[in-house]
Structure formats: C-alpha cells, structure tokens
Amino acid sequence: MISRNRTLIEGFRLIGVSDVPELQVVISLLILLIYLISLVGNLTLLLLVGLDVHLHTPMYFFLSNLSVIDISSSTTALHKIFAIALTQNNMVSTSACLTQLYIFGTLTINEISILATMSFDRYVAICRPLHYHTVMSRRLCVLLAVLSWPFAFLELLPTIVLVSRFTCYISKEIDHYFCDLLPLRDITCSDTSLLDLYIEIFGNIFVFTLLFLTIIPYVFIILSILRISSSVGRHKTFYTCSSHIMVVMLFYSSLILQYIVAILGKNIGSNKMLSLFNTAIVPMMNPLIYSLKNKDVKSALQRKLKW
C-alpha cells in the first residue's frame, strides 16, 4: 500500500490546463480568445438591455443577471490560466484558493437559480399571458434576483468551512487550472466523510430540485403549445422560449457530465475538459444563442447600430 505523507500546506501549485509548457501556452491563447468573445458578447447584451426600452422586460432583466454571472464565473475560473501563461507563476495561497472556490461555487449556484427563475418567467408568459405583468412585477423580479445571492452564499458556506478544516495534504499540486472542489478533495489526507455526506445530501438535493423546477414549467409550456390548433401559432410560441431551452440544455449537460465523470472516477483530464467547456464555452455561447435566435435582441442591435 502506498504511504500517504501528511504535509501541512500554506499554498498550492496549479498544474494548469496542460503539464506540457508549450501546449499550455497554445491552449491559454485559445482560451483567451474564447474569453474575449464571451466578454464582448455578454457586455454587448448588457448594454442593449440597459439602453433599449423595448428590452426593459422581466425576461431581459434576468438575462442581464445571467450575463453578469457568466462574466464573473469565467473571469474567476480562467484568470489564473492567463497569469500562469504570462508570469509562469502557478502558485496560489490557501486563502486565495478557498476564496476562488467560494466565489466560483456561489456563482454556479446563482446561475442555476436564475435559469429556474427564467423558466418560471417563460411559463407565465406563455401559459398565463393575461396575468404576466401582474405576476412578474418589477418588485418580484428584483426580489428573486437579489435573494438568489445570499441563498447561494449560505448554501455553499458549509462546504467552504469543511474544506478549510482540512489539516493535511498528500501533495501541494492541484491537477487543475483553478481551485475546484473535487481536485482539492482528492489531494487531502484529512477525513472527507462529512464533506461527502453534505455534498451527497444537500448539494444533490439542491441541484436536482432546481433542475426539477427548471424542467416542470416547460412540461406545462409544451402541453400548452400542443393545444394550439395553428401550426404557425405553435411554432411562434415555441420560438419564444427556444433560446432559454438551449441555454438550459447547454449548462446542465456539462454539469451532469462532470458529475458522472466524478462518480465514475475517470481521470482528471476528462474533468478539466468538461470544466473548460462549462467555464469558457458556455458563457461564450449564451449571448450568441440569445442574439442569433431572438428577434427582439436582433432588432435592438439593428436600432442601436443605425443610431
């Protein structure tokens, strides 16, 4: 049996996206390009929603929140890749590592909450159109968006407290490009049973409850669409929520695949690739999906470009 050397660590060394220096630079440049496209896309969407009065609706209010979360989460997760490529310094202190883990985890939980809220918004718009402005009032929208932040912070707090209590590690190298929970847990020699129990019970219950709350509105939406006699009407109604369906599928497919890979105990390389998809590709795709498939956004963009 391999002996586990117990080592107290004040900081960690991030391996990055690749352990080959030449390959690391090439991949970092590609990720930087994706990040810049994501940044421009999300900032453009935020400006359009802020400047165009036609987009001052609950749907685009929540979409703005999603853009803020996407910018924040991709910046939080990817900034160390660029720092390593520029300075060759891949060290991170324990406090900085825990802070990054906390912020990124909070943003992920917040994104799950916002996607569920957007599903409810689409349900009210399609299935209860006459009551839409009454139900989705400005006060309720602001309340839902604001409450998702403390809720996310509190939900993740026990995880951070348990991780901060790790007293020893097998190694100070984290085979990842940021301080993610599973790679950090894999290198500790402290007892992780309480952390695993919390993740299994509360983490999974939370994620799958919000997934359920995201899917259920679309069950009612589909039933409502099927009752429409006109094929043109069915297509038009489905088109209004197709962008959100694509965003939800994109986000949850990567999240569930990461979960399955972790359960199956596959190599960390697979998990890193899925993490890159979740932290780089998904934030880039979200504004593109809403821009290319949404007539309101395209019309607003045309109006501002003419102006």
Rank of each mutant, 00 (worst) to 15 (best):
E200S: 12
E200N: 12
N204F: 13
I205N: 06
I205H: 15
V207E: 05
V207T: 14
F208M: 04
L210P: 05
L211D: 03
F212Q: 02
L213M: 10
T214H: 04
T214A: 11
I215M: 14
I216G: 03
V219R: 14
I221N: 00
I221R: 00
I221H: 00
I221K: 01
I222K: 11
I222V: 11
L223I: 02
L226P: 10
L226K: 13
L226H: 09
L226M: 08
R227I: 00
I228V: 09
S229Q: 07
S230E: 08
S230F: 01
S230C: 03
V232N: 13
G233T: 09
R234W: 01
H235E: 11
H235C: 13
K236R: 04
T237K: 01
F238N: 00
F238S: 00
C241H: 09
C241F: 09
C241T: 15
C241K: 06
C241P: 00
S242C: 07
S242R: 08
S242D: 02
S243F: 03
S243Y: 03
I245T: 12
V247E: 12
V247D: 13
V247T: 13
V247G: 07
M249C: 12
F251M: 01
Y252P: 05
S253H: 03
S254C: 04
L255D: 02
I256F: 12
I256W: 07
I256K: 13
Q258S: 08
Y259H: 07
Y259P: 00
Y259N: 03
A262E: 05
A262Y: 15
A262K: 12
I263F: 14
I263P: 04
L264M: 13
G265R: 12
K266S: 10
K266G: 03
N267V: 02
S270G: 03
S270M: 08
K272S: 08
M273W: 05
L274R: 02
S275F: 04
L276W: 00
L276A: 03
N278Y: 08
T279Y: 10
